[in-house]
Amino acid sequence: MPETSGANILLRRARRLRKLTGDDRLQSQSEIDQQNMTASEILSVALVRPMEIMLQDPSIFFVNLYTGYFYGVFYTFFEVFPLVFPPFYDFNLGQTGLAFLLCLIGVIVALLIYFAYVYFYMVPDNINNGFREQEHRLVPAVIGSCLLPVGLFMFAWTADSNIHWSVPLVGVGIFVIGHFWTMQSLFIYLPFSYPKYAASLFAGNSVWRSATAGASIVFARPLFINLGVHKGVTLLAGLSVVGIFGTLALYVFGKRLRARSKFAES
């Protein structure tokens, strides 16, 4: 793929010119800036800046909090499946493992629909109307945020020995579809809105999501054992509903938030 970072394009151009001319005075602005940076400044940019942006920009704070949350919910499946399918449906270890294939099926379905959305709508829209404001790319996230609690509620309320095992797994598939659309849309929104700090944003988000996923494995089993599978998953689904309002707020008020942010670009 072609390089899109202006700083990196100029850096490569400066390297080519130095090689052609042998003149080491030819440097890009990024090289000049980095020459004067101390080790503590480099460390600060790498470790402190992602947290600084997150705490000072409400849009980034919401994206990190929300993606970390439903990423962690996804990892609770590793704890809740053994509490549902063996006792309720007499699944053995192998059959319980096969139940996770619904996550793969959900991703494939989400990917195919998303490709169709990009090919039949986004590409023609960009050609005819040009690049619209960044919030226009949040439409899949709005739909996906609604699917997240739908899938969880369906799993929570149908995980019962009197209901066929395929029904709660359909809920898992719906959740995974919503998960994919929401994360994909938000991760496109970030670099378009904050191109200068995209690397720092993704680094901070990755740390946040990974930490949440690790913590979810710790609290998931006690949660489901103490509350029960039905109430435990219902609690996670109820918290997911809050994300719908947050995503809608980002879609409606995102432009105003970007205008106030010192990190974003219009």
Rank of each mutant, 00 (worst) to 15 (best):
F219D: 09
A159D: 03
S193W: 01
T158E: 11
S200T: 11
W181Q: 08
A203Y: 04
F192I: 11
P149A: 01
W157M: 08
F192Q: 15
A198S: 15
G204E: 10
R209T: 13
G171M: 00
A213R: 12
A156V: 06
K196F: 06
V218L: 15
A220Q: 08
N226H: 13
Y194K: 06
G204A: 13
F153L: 08
G214Q: 06
T158A: 11
F224H: 05
V167W: 03
L186S: 03
V172Y: 01
W165H: 13
F175L: 06
V170N: 07
P149V: 01
G232D: 07
G178L: 03
S193I: 02
P168F: 01
S185R: 01
G173V: 01
A198T: 14
C146D: 10
L201G: 05
S216M: 09
H179N: 14
G204D: 13
L152P: 05
K231N: 15
A213P: 07
F175K: 02
G151K: 02
A156F: 06
I177V: 15
L147R: 02
N162C: 03
F153R: 01
S206K: 04
P191S: 10
G214S: 14
T212H: 08
W165M: 11
V207Y: 12
P222G: 11
L152V: 04
I188H: 10
V207K: 04
G204W: 06
Y197H: 15
V207E: 09
G144A: 12
Y189Q: 10
V172N: 01
V229F: 05
S161D: 14
G204P: 01
L147N: 04
A199E: 14
V176T: 12
S185M: 06
N162A: 15
F153W: 03
V218G: 10
F153P: 12
I174Q: 02
I177K: 01
C146Y: 11
P195S: 10
A156C: 12
V176F: 07
I163F: 10
C146N: 13
V218Q: 13
S145M: 04
A213Q: 15
Y197A: 09
S210A: 14
W208I: 11
F180E: 08
S200E: 15
S216G: 05
I174W: 04
L223V: 09
A213H: 07
A198K: 05
W157R: 09
A220D: 11
A220R: 00
F224R: 01
W165K: 06
A213S: 15
V176S: 07
A198W: 04
